[in-house]
Computed example of a mutant assay.
Amino acid sequence: MSESLAPLQETLARIAEQGLVLDAEDLSRTTGISSAKDVRALLNGKDLADDDIDTRIRERVQLLCRRCLSENGKDYDDKDAVTALAKDIAGGIGVSIVWARQLVLGEKTPSMKHGHQLTRYFGVPDGFLTETPAAALNRALQPYLQIEHKIEADLDDPLAALKERFGLVGVARRGEPLSREEAKRFAGLIADVLQQNMEDQS
């Protein structure tokens, strides 16, 4: 197992515990991985053959360009649209239009400096152009773990869940600290009262 695949396997194991269904097509678009087939392979624990990093960068730049054109109802067959995109990129990252056009067409590999500027231009995370497929997929899956953390936090702190549910600034009481079970009962009592008040006012 490669070093970049190991963290992904840990992430997938935690997501599997939640029983979530992952959309390979959507993850392909989010990560820049060339195909949903490759995403499925990674989700199934398989490693992908190492690719040339320059090729990876050029392909991901083209993916971003293709996405940008598609959002405007255009594609690579529209030479005027490609030229307009190249001009916009040239102005955005400070290169010549000729060089930007070669970049859009996958004929040039951006330097580290221009690669960083391109990620900002397209609004994608740093590292998007250079990450291995496994690392890119692991990054894209992190929001699922944040959901897991939130669920765990809510289970551990019933009063925090109560505050979020009803938009409360805080919940105060006198006396000794509550056990988790006591906090659950206390939160349930307050929730019932608040819910009844909301229904009375509606």
Score class of each variant (00 low, 15 high):
G94S: 02
N72C: 10
K37I: 10
N44C: 08
A49Q: 10
G106V: 06
K74R: 07
E17D: 14
I53L: 13
L27Q: 11
D126E: 14
K79Y: 08
G92P: 01
F128Y: 15
S35W: 08
L12N: 14
A36S: 13
D50V: 10
Q117W: 09
L42S: 01
D51A: 11
A41V: 05
Q18A: 13
T11G: 03
I89M: 03
Q9K: 12
T11D: 09
Q9D: 11
G115Q: 10
A86L: 01
L22M: 11
I53H: 10
N72M: 06
S111E: 04
R29E: 15
I53R: 15
T30F: 05
G92W: 04
K113G: 07
R40Q: 12
M112A: 13
Q102P: 01
H114F: 06
V82T: 08
L20V: 11
V39M: 02
D77M: 07
T30M: 10
V61T: 15
D75L: 01
T119L: 10
L69W: 02
H114V: 03
I89G: 00
L22H: 11
A84S: 09
V82W: 02
A90C: 04
L64D: 02
R67T: 15
T31W: 07
K74F: 06
V61C: 09
D78V: 00
L69K: 02
A13W: 05
R58W: 04
G92S: 04
I97P: 03
L103V: 00
V124T: 06
G127S: 05
L105K: 12
T130A: 12
D54T: 15
E25G: 12
G92I: 00
E17C: 04
D126T: 13
R101N: 15
C68M: 03
H116A: 12
K87A: 10
T55S: 10
K46P: 02
L118Q: 09
L64A: 15
A84F: 07
G106A: 00
R60F: 05
L20R: 12
K79L: 08
V95M: 10
S70K: 09
D88T: 12
K37L: 10
Y76F: 14
G19K: 13
A100R: 04
D78Y: 03
Q62M: 15
T109Y: 02
A49L: 10
P110G: 04
I97W: 07
Y121Q: 08
R40A: 07
V61S: 06
N44D: 14
K113D: 12
I57G: 06
G19Y: 07
A81Y: 00
